[in-house]
Design a protein around this nucleic acid. Structure first.
Length: 666
RNA sequence: GCCCGCGUAGCUCAGGGGUAGAGCGCCUCCUUGGUAAGGAGGAGGUCAUGAGUUCAAAUCUCAUCGCGGGCUCCA
């Protein structure tokens, strides 16, 4: 066969010599795509542009016309190739600068917005942050030299010989574990670099133009803490300098919004060495915001038929054995403490306590559903290195609830939970909520509890609930908890980041362990269905997300100081205080600034503290019982009476408006 | 927990084997000023903690504590 029919997917067709490469074939089909392509998909398989079409035969994939899809920059697939190739470039540069470096793995990352790729390696000496600029510089030099990425397919034994000759023990291990009869290796010609790799890669190094090294960290070989610790170099890469630039800007924006920085600047919370890592101090202004959050939530809970409960922070160890936490979650719990020969442990979860209330008396089907809700504070023994501001802590409060109901009632309960979540997140300014349905799937790896029927019913109810609401969701096989399927919620914040928050979890486990029962219509005992449910998840973490979402500039109903009264001279202080009193009497949170500063400085102070409304008062206002209103983002919005302002502000608070002025422009 | 980096005034940071620095903030005084910083003066530090090297350590070494970045990712 000397000629092959080739065709762009759904496009041009042509005939090329069977010995042609993908690049040559593409040139016949679409000159523009040929120029841009990074790699290609040929009869469905990803290959390099240098791939010779006559090799299809060797791969038993000779369907004609041969379908060619160019892998273009600007697509997910293209970005993956680009980043993967950049990871190789990184490794080549490190080998150049630090001969003797042992290579681990170097994949592209597409789903983590922080990074684009990494390479794990063991250098002859510990690398430090100061080495990164030199490595990046060498990467640019190699990129400019326009070196080809060259693929070779060799026998596994040949590859083993190659890598052991080069003293690459980790690569040998990988070839041994993962390699088939023949394996592919990639060279960057002109560099000592060889990698065991499936590819595909860009044709040569000058296709890599927009990349950057980011940070250095530790990583375990195969992610296993008992294995050797390697060094991981993180970087990112994009198709164009503009995209890289935009990404850098987004990163700076995230930095600007960092809740730890804003938390300090606005005096919202602190974490203090002297008291312990991962323990949060809510300062008055942070506490005020939390109070507003909780007040809203309590009102919603009451409206939706939840019953408020309070439970202890500690319980006998035996209780945790019954629940199973001691055995399967014990590593994440604070160690037991003993009093009069009885061991106690701090609670890492609230469920057993709510179960305690359920079990405190006999329950009839007429009592169900029971919905116990609590701002339950829990303690978890998180490793010190994982702690992070409000996002990962050792003591936190869950807006927890446990639903106990009959199997017939469950579907409605789930529906209500989903509605509740969407409403609450909307109130806090998160319009985009994403759902993930985690199911057992065919995964047999875990010690799944419950019967096949139970799983099918539970997964069906969760899926139906999401379907009937018409919300988009992702179904994740094998990600369910061992005791039941769940729905997780994620919200998208003001700069497009996703945050995993609350969850609705079905539980086959605890009702069994605690032998929960209700008396049915048939006068016989039945096992209730139990659902764990949290919206915020951790109140601390949700607060952190809110701070970053609003960059500290909270909507009026959440703002710790809603109004700053700013007298122009100290002659007006008395009037300003009386305005402050009037607003406080109307339930608004007010500060009166009587410092000996000019009005400009007082306004600046209030702006920096992101106070929604400033009321400027001078002689004119004092004479007529008026205030000159300045809104944080809009500036001066005119003079109005104290009563009119109070009415407007109260209206905005009561409607939990997300912008600080009414439509009429106030 | 482990790897790398960091720890100097309330905050942000400079300095660096020989008397501890800046800006902001704080306090006092002057100024009474109409929409994002008025002026002057002052207080404030065991340079994270402990040990070592040295005539001398905030500075060099080690340990401890704390903080930051990480620790599933297709060869």
């Amino acid at each position: 066969m000397s000629e092959l029919n080739v065709q762009l997917k759904g496009g041009e067709a042509a005939q090329v010599p069977a010995s042609a490469s993908v690049a040559e074939a593409l040139k016949q089909l679409d000159r523009d795509a040929a120029k841009q392509a990074l790699a290609a998909r040929v009869n469905g398989s990803e290959v390099d542009l240098a791939f010779k079409l006559d090799r299809l035969e060797a791969n038993g994939n000779t369907v004609e016309p041969v379908e060619i899809v160019p892998v273009l920059p600007g697509t997910r697939e293209g970005l993956e190739v680009l980043r993967h190739s950049t990871a190789h470039l990184l490794a080549a540069a490190v080998l150049d600068l630090f001969p003797g470096t042992k290579l681990g793995i170097g994949p592209a990352l597409l789903d983590d917005p922080r990074y684009g790729y990494f390479y794990d390696l063991i250098a002859p000496r510990q690398l430090t942050d100061e080495d990164l600029p030199a490595i990046e510089k060498r990467m640019r030099e190699i990129a400019k030299r326009n070196m080809p990425y060259r693929r070779e397919e060799i026998a596994k034994s040949e590859a083993m010989r190659l890598f052991s000759e080069r003293d690459e023990p980790l690569k040998c291990k990988l070839v041994d574990d993962k390699g088939g009869e023949t394996v592919s290796v990639y060279y960057i010609d002109g560099s000592p670099f060889i990698d065991f790799c499936l590819g595909p890669h860009v044709p040569n190094t000058n296709r890599l133009k927009a990349f950057k090294l980011l940070s250095l960290s530790g990583a375990y070989w195969m992610g296993d803490a008992t294995q050797a610790q390697m060094q991981r170099i993180y970087g990112t890469a994009f198709a164009t300098a503009e995209e890289l630039d935009a990404w850098v800007k987004q990163r700076e924006e995230a930095e600007r919004r960092d809740h730890r920085r804003i938390g300090r600047e606005l005096d919202l919370f602190s974490i203090q060495d002297a008291y312990g890592q991962g323990l949060i101090f809510w300062h008055p202004k942070g506490a005020m915001i939390r109070k507003a959050m909780e007040d809203y939530l309590y009102a919603e809970l009451q409206r939706r038929g939840y019953l408020l409960v309070y439970t202890p922070h500690i319980a006998k160890r035996e209780l945790w054995r019954v629940s199973g936490h001691d055995q399967s979650y014990g590593d994440s719990m604070f160690a037991p403490t003993t009093l009069e020969d009885t061991e106690f442990r701090l609670k890492p979860m609230n469920c057993p306590f709510h179960i305690g209330i359920y079990k405190s008396q006999q329950r009839s089907y007429r009592d169900l559903p029971l919905r116990y809700a609590e701002m339950g504070t829990v303690y978890r023994a998180e490793l010190s290195g994982t702690l992070h501001g409000l996002m990962r802590v050792r003591g936190f409060t869950v807006d927890d609830a446990h639903l106990f109901c009959t199997p017939d009632q469950i579907r409605k309960e789930i529906d209500d939970c989903v509605d509740f979540v969407v409403d609450v997140f909307k109130a806090f300014g998160f319009d985009k909520v994403r759902f993930e349905l985690s199911v057992k799937g065919s995964d047999t790896g875990k010690n799944w509890l419950g019967s096949e029927d139970q799983w099918a019913d539970a997964e069906g109810a969760l899926a139906e609930s999401l379907d009937s609401r018409g919300v988009a969701y992702e179904r994740i096989e094998g990600e369910a908890a061992f005791y039941g399927p769940k729905i997780d919620f994620k919200v998208e914040d003001a700069i497009g980041r996703l945050w995993q928050l609350g969850t609705v979890q079905w539980d086959f486990n605890l009702p069994e362990r605690f032998e929960l029962e209700f008396v049915g219509e048939d006068n016989k005992p039945h096992r209730p269905v139990m659902v764990h449910r949290a919206l915020f998840g951790s109140v601390e973490r949700f607060f952190g997300v809110l701070i970053e979402h609003y960059a500290g500039a909270f909507p009026l109903w959440l703002a710790p100081v809603q109004v700053a009264v700013l007298p122009i001279t100290d002659r007006i202080n008395g009037y300003a205080e009386s305005v402050g009193e009037a607003l406080r009497a109307a339930g608004l949170r007010v500060e009166v600034n009587t410092r000996g500063e000019k009005i400009g400085a007082k306004i600046r102070d209030a702006q920096m503290q992101k106070v929604p409304f400033m009321l400027v008062c001078g002689d004119r206002e004092a004479e007529s019982n008026m205030v000159a209103v300045r809104e944080r983002t809009k500036g001066d919005i005119g003079v109005m009476s104290v009563e009119d302002f109070t009415g407007m502000a109260r209206g905005l608070v009561e409607s939990r408006a997300l912008v600080n002025v009414t439509e009429s422009g106030a």
